[in-house]
Amino acid sequence: MSLRVLALETSTDWPSLALLTPERLLGERLWEARQTLAEQLVPKMQELLKEANLSPQDLSLIAVSRGPGSFTGIRIGVVTAKGLAQALGIPLLGVSALDALAWGTPCQGFRTCVALLPAPKRGVYVGVYQVKGKALHHQGPFRFLLPHQIVETLTLCPLPGLLTGTASAVERWLEALGQGWQWAGPAFGWPRASVVGALAWQRWQRGEREDLHSFAPLYLKPTEAEEKLGTIVYPPRP
């Protein structure tokens, strides 16, 4: 039987669910859920499985976006994914929302791809990637940046550069960054569950596994001291 992956992405106001195998996407749901995610997530999951003529017992792997992003959304997604994996006795693999956003964007032709998600205090969560052909390579850790740091940080990136994320997270920085930068556009504004599932499948192929009990969301929430400094990075400094 082919591996069947159920993927959850709940880090933004536009959550999504996807059902896929290594060969094809069986179905995907994307909807707006500002205050109703907890009530909608499981029913939409049931609808997705029903349309594919599958039951939860047919699943082989649960994939979940672990953040950063909406604190409430990430918590709901991770708790739901862990509960499913535990109840079904199947593995769980986590994927960063920034990785899902970047890998879901066509970055060929650029030297740098920067994934941006809205964060508290008008800041952004940032993932910077070097583009090599169709592959993306992390350039440093994920970061939480406040407004005064964003342009300063991104001007160090090789050009041409591509910004991907929602209009609210991206548009205000384009003019300040100047020539050499483009926005991927609204079609690539949110991380997608289908990309979360595909990246989780790649991790599975490499033999990577999560410890279900210690698996936790990636909040990138700044401490009080870090807020004063205006930056936080992940993985944490030793």
Rank of each mutant, 00 (worst) to 15 (best):
1 M>I: 00
8 L>K: 08
16 S>P: 13
17 L>M: 02
17 L>P: 06
18 A>E: 04
20 L>V: 02
22 P>W: 13
24 R>K: 06
29 R>E: 11
36 T>Q: 12
39 E>N: 00
42 V>Q: 02
44 K>V: 05
44 K>T: 04
44 K>H: 12
46 Q>P: 06
49 L>D: 10
49 L>A: 04
52 A>G: 01
55 S>Q: 09
59 L>M: 00
62 I>G: 14
65 S>N: 08
69 G>K: 02
73 G>C: 03
77 G>Q: 01
78 V>K: 01
81 A>N: 05
84 L>C: 05
84 L>A: 00
85 A>E: 00
86 Q>V: 05
90 I>R: 06
97 A>R: 03
102 A>D: 00
105 T>S: 12
107 C>D: 10
108 Q>W: 06
108 Q>M: 01
111 R>A: 14
111 R>E: 14
111 R>Y: 09
118 P>W: 01
121 K>D: 13
126 V>M: 12
127 G>S: 10
139 Q>V: 10
147 P>N: 05
149 Q>L: 15
152 E>W: 15
158 P>T: 14
158 P>R: 10
159 L>T: 14
166 T>R: 11
168 S>Q: 15
168 S>Y: 13
172 R>E: 14
173 W>C: 07
173 W>I: 03
174 L>M: 02
180 G>K: 03
181 W>Y: 04
187 A>E: 12
195 V>D: 00
204 W>Y: 15
205 Q>E: 09
221 K>M: 11
221 K>W: 10
222 P>K: 02
225 A>I: 14
235 P>F: 09
236 P>K: 03
238 P>V: 15
